[in-house]
Amino acid sequence: MAEEVDEESPLPSLDIDAEEEEDEEEENLDDDSERLKDDAHQAVANFRSNKYRGHNLSTVSQMENIKERLNKYKENRLARLSTLQLPHRHIIEMVALFLGIDQNEVVEGVIDLEAHVNLLNAFMSKGDKHAIIFFYQDDEAPPLETGRYSAFVTGLKEKIEKRVFVSDGLHTAFKEQAVVVYKVEDKDLEMRNLGEQPELILTAL
Rank of each mutant, 00 (worst) to 15 (best):
residue 147 G to L: 01
residue 134 F to E: 00
residue 182 Y to F: 02
residue 161 E to L: 07
residue 179 V to E: 00
residue 165 F to P: 02
residue 142 P to S: 09
residue 138 D to G: 12
residue 181 V to P: 01
residue 174 F to N: 14
residue 168 D to P: 02
residue 164 V to W: 04
residue 186 D to G: 12
residue 153 V to F: 11
residue 182 Y to M: 12
residue 142 P to K: 04
residue 157 K to I: 08
residue 129 K to Y: 09
residue 177 Q to Y: 10
residue 167 S to I: 03
residue 165 F to A: 12
residue 138 D to C: 15
residue 166 V to D: 03
residue 135 F to G: 07
residue 150 S to C: 03
residue 159 K to G: 12
residue 162 K to G: 04
residue 186 D to L: 06
residue 139 D to Q: 12
residue 135 F to T: 13
residue 152 F to P: 00
residue 181 V to I: 04
residue 180 V to T: 07
residue 174 F to P: 04
residue 139 D to W: 14
residue 149 Y to T: 03
residue 172 T to M: 08
residue 166 V to E: 04
residue 147 G to M: 01
residue 177 Q to I: 05
residue 183 K to P: 07
residue 129 K to W: 10
residue 131 A to W: 12
residue 176 E to P: 02
residue 148 R to F: 13
residue 157 K to M: 04
residue 171 H to R: 04
residue 139 D to T: 06
residue 155 G to R: 01
residue 132 I to Y: 02
residue 175 K to F: 03
residue 164 V to D: 07
residue 159 K to H: 11
residue 152 F to M: 11
residue 169 G to D: 01
residue 183 K to F: 05
residue 163 R to Q: 11
residue 156 L to W: 03
residue 156 L to M: 13
residue 162 K to N: 09
residue 167 S to Y: 00
residue 132 I to M: 04
residue 145 E to I: 10
residue 132 I to A: 04
residue 143 P to R: 00
residue 147 G to E: 03
residue 178 A to H: 14
residue 159 K to W: 05
residue 181 V to Q: 06
residue 173 A to D: 15
residue 132 I to N: 00
residue 186 D to H: 08
residue 137 Q to R: 06
residue 145 E to F: 07
residue 133 I to P: 00
residue 184 V to H: 08
residue 157 K to W: 14
residue 142 P to A: 14
residue 177 Q to F: 15
residue 168 D to Q: 14
residue 151 A to P: 13
residue 156 L to D: 02
residue 141 A to E: 06
residue 180 V to L: 04
residue 138 D to W: 06
residue 182 Y to H: 14
residue 161 E to V: 14
residue 133 I to F: 09
residue 175 K to P: 02
residue 173 A to Y: 15
residue 179 V to A: 04
residue 167 S to P: 09
residue 165 F to Y: 06
residue 158 E to Q: 15
residue 148 R to C: 12
residue 178 A to T: 05
residue 170 L to C: 12
residue 135 F to C: 13
residue 145 E to P: 14
residue 184 V to R: 09
residue 155 G to K: 03
residue 151 A to T: 14
residue 168 D to N: 05
residue 164 V to A: 15
residue 169 G to Y: 06
residue 144 L to Q: 05
residue 162 K to W: 03
residue 146 T to C: 10
residue 186 D to S: 04
residue 169 G to L: 10
residue 139 D to I: 11
residue 135 F to K: 03
residue 182 Y to Q: 13
residue 174 F to H: 05
residue 169 G to Q: 03
residue 130 H to V: 08
residue 148 R to N: 13
residue 179 V to I: 08
residue 139 D to Y: 15
residue 185 E to C: 15
residue 160 I to P: 08
residue 147 G to D: 05
residue 148 R to V: 05
residue 142 P to V: 03
residue 148 R to H: 12
residue 137 Q to D: 08
residue 162 K to T: 14
residue 141 A to K: 15
residue 180 V to I: 02
residue 141 A to I: 15
residue 162 K to M: 13
residue 147 G to C: 06
residue 131 A to F: 09
residue 159 K to E: 15
residue 166 V to P: 09
residue 144 L to P: 04
residue 148 R to W: 06
residue 135 F to P: 01
residue 157 K to H: 10
